[in-house]
Design a protein around this nucleic acid. Structure first.
Lengths: 217, 217
DNA sequence: AAAATAATAGAACAGATGTTCGTTGTGGGC
DNA sequence: GCCCACAACGAACATCTGTTCTATTATTTT
């Protein structure tokens, strides 16, 4: 609410309150006639008249000719995008382990989400989250229990941390990815663990790590 | 989104995405015909058919007979508060280094903020952020450049990671904190680095680490 | 292959919806 | 009282909107 705001008349005050309360209760905006009834007015044109003033003063935004086209001003709730990132499962930072669904990355089947802000993903599309299981990426400072935000890509640079689906094993794993001559090396970041080698045709990259989130206690 | 959720068809997936994106862009819900156009369908009854399924599975709520009467399920958009956490400076994960301001932790002077959601702080008060500088906490998987979310507390348990202000040195550092007989041990999480010992009277705890955030690229 | 079920298409309908216009009411200044 | 500006009223209109229905098509099951 960055526009100059002057003192509201009682009717305008009632209208603003009504809009915001209706929104809070219902999750969608009121119609003009809802406002008529809600504020005890007797004409839609009174509502229209006052909505013009309220829009000019920055309390609301209106979308012309659109039913229920009242929204909150830009900035009041869209400072940064809020993203509900599906936590689609656990990924092994260790040896490949089976995942429950052979169609491994069904983002839409996520049973849990983590909420992050847009600046954490830096505007990237196709972001999902995984909970890390295991210790093979500890030298890259990714710990068991951490959440990794993944961007869905099907190709990565050598050395990037990627979620990889091994087709014949029907298993997924989180490793550093290296494409070498004729084979793929999936390298743990843990000096006690050996690399996994795979045929390129057996490997599907399911995304790369773009952020790590760890909560303590 | 806590209802049982089954695999969505591509159309249902498109519809859900469309609704949420429309909402994000406009601040009010789409009409059925907006969805028809937005997902390239050819009939409002396809939308209706799929909206019934989406509602049953908990992705949306519908309000019968109401124009644009689609809302997000209760809880889906008020999951957590959005917090603007001040990034008040860099803290050394190494030897204590001088910070520019002798009044070390002036939260209000923060020139930068990081936006996180409430579930990351789990409702804690007095949260601020620090950018980690140095490598002395790498064995605790906190890397140079990571952001640590700190909760302001003036006492911690032994072994907790804390930001500590050393009064006579006028320096701050991030270490594991141990209160021993008659002295304080500030322990790096890096086997190549030695502990720092200090008089209890010279030590002010400025907060404890509650989360670690790392962005790649 | 046939049957059953799920999904889609298209049209029509009734009512909701925002907008517009002309009129009336109110309050203040002269 | 008159004039003016602001605010409110009521009616009408065109279009938007959700719903319903039937028929067809696609997919799954037997």
């Amino acid at each position: 609410m960055k526009t100059k705001q002057e003192k509201l008349s009682p009717k305008q005050h009632c209208i603003v309150d009504f809009i915001y309360r209706f929104w809070e209760d219902r999750g969608f905006p009121p119609s003009i006639r809802d406002i008529v009834a809600g504020c005890g007015l007797s004409s839609t044109s009174v509502v229209d008249y006052n909505l013009r003033i309220l829009e000019r003063q920055g309390y609301i935004r209106r979308h012309r000719e659109v039913s229920r086209g009242i929204s909150m001003p830009a900035g009041a709730h869209t400072t940064g995008r809020r993203l509900f990132i599906p936590v689609i499962g656990q990924i092994a930072a260790g040896e490949p382990i089976p995942v429950p669904d052979t169609d491994a990355w069904d983002v839409t089947a996520a049973s849990d989400t983590i909420e992050v802000t847009g600046d954490l993903t830096r505007g990237k599309e196709g972001v999902y989250a995984l909970k890390v299981k295991g210790l093979s990426m500890v030298d890259a400072m990714i710990n068991d229990g951490d959440i990794v935000l993944m961007q869905y890509v099907n190709a990565v640079e050598n050395g990037e941390m990627a979620a990889v689906w091994l087709k014949s094993e029907k298993e997924a794993t989180l490793k550093k990815f290296y494409l070498e001559e004729g084979r793929v090396r999936l390298q743990p970041a843990n000096s006690r663990m050996k690399a996994i080698y795979a045929e390129p045709g057996n490997v599907e990259i399911q995304g790369r790590v773009i952020a790590v989130i760890r909560q303590l206690d």
